[in-house]
Design a protein around this nucleic acid. Structure first.
Lengths: 138, 138
DNA sequence: TTATATTGCGCAATGA
DNA sequence: CTCATTGCGCAATATA
């Protein structure tokens, strides 16, 4: 949807360089006041998802990477599609021009044919030679 | 695909019981660094970003609507673009077919012309206009 | 089962 | 000020 505008990249909130080893970053309620965040997700399976866990952070980081990658790809694809539209439109014009040319050529030839046919008819019809204007070069 | 049946996804970090006095649940990720959550975004007079504020919630909700709308639109546009590609491809095929046809017709007519030209040449060669045996069917 | 890829959604900064 | 865009993180889900 963008790409038309030159908006491009803007600064964002934090320019954090995605530090793999980012200690800080608190979801706000690690071990502070509320211990268990929303106590357990569901009483379903034992899905340990300790938000303070190292494992958790690591998984999050990986997913964030994947998300970014996926979105980039998506954007690129959209761009390519738009480009293809332009390309096809261009080719379309070219083809139409060609058709126009061919049609005109064909028209000329057909007219010539008709002309000859008439001349022939005029020549053959009467037993005598052709009238004032005969075939000839022109 | 996805399109999950709206499983309460938003409830996660927003399950706040709206405790104005207990700033809980922050989306994470501090802006410029570990800024404290105090109600003071920038050096501006407006400190209207109390998360528990009614005004805040209202603004958030409106923005969420806008975001959703914008994304829907974006998606739709991408879809339309893709559709246009298909349409253009189809038209291109049609045009190419037409070109092929015209080219063939033109070729036939040209051949006929050449043939006639040869016949004429043969007939003109001798001074006797009346063609004894023309190359009609030949 | 685990790891990655997609997708919907909310938040905040910024553009209009 | 309001609304529209956009980058980003989270979690659910889909795919490998």
């Amino acid at each position: 949807m963008n790409q038309s505008s030159s908006t491009g990249s803007e600064g964002l909130s934090d320019a954090q360089g995605s530090s793999p080893t980012s200690p800080q970053l608190v979801p706000l309620n690690p071990g502070g006041g509320g211990k268990a965040p929303p106590p357990s997700k569901h009483s379903k399976k034992g899905q340990r998802m300790d938000r303070g866990s190292d494992e958790y952070r690591q998984r999050r980081e990986r997913n964030n990477m994947a998300v970014k990658k996926s979105r980039l790809k998506s954007k690129q694809k959209a761009q390519d599609t738009q480009q293809r539209v332009n390309q096809l439109k261009e080719e379309n014009e070219r083809l139409e021009a060609k058709i126009k040319l061919l049609t005109k050529e064909l028209s000329v030839l057909k007219d010539l044919f008709l002309e000859h046919a008439h001349n022939l008819a005029d020549n053959v019809q009467p037993e005598g030679p052709p009238p004032g204007q005969e075939s000839a070069g022109h």
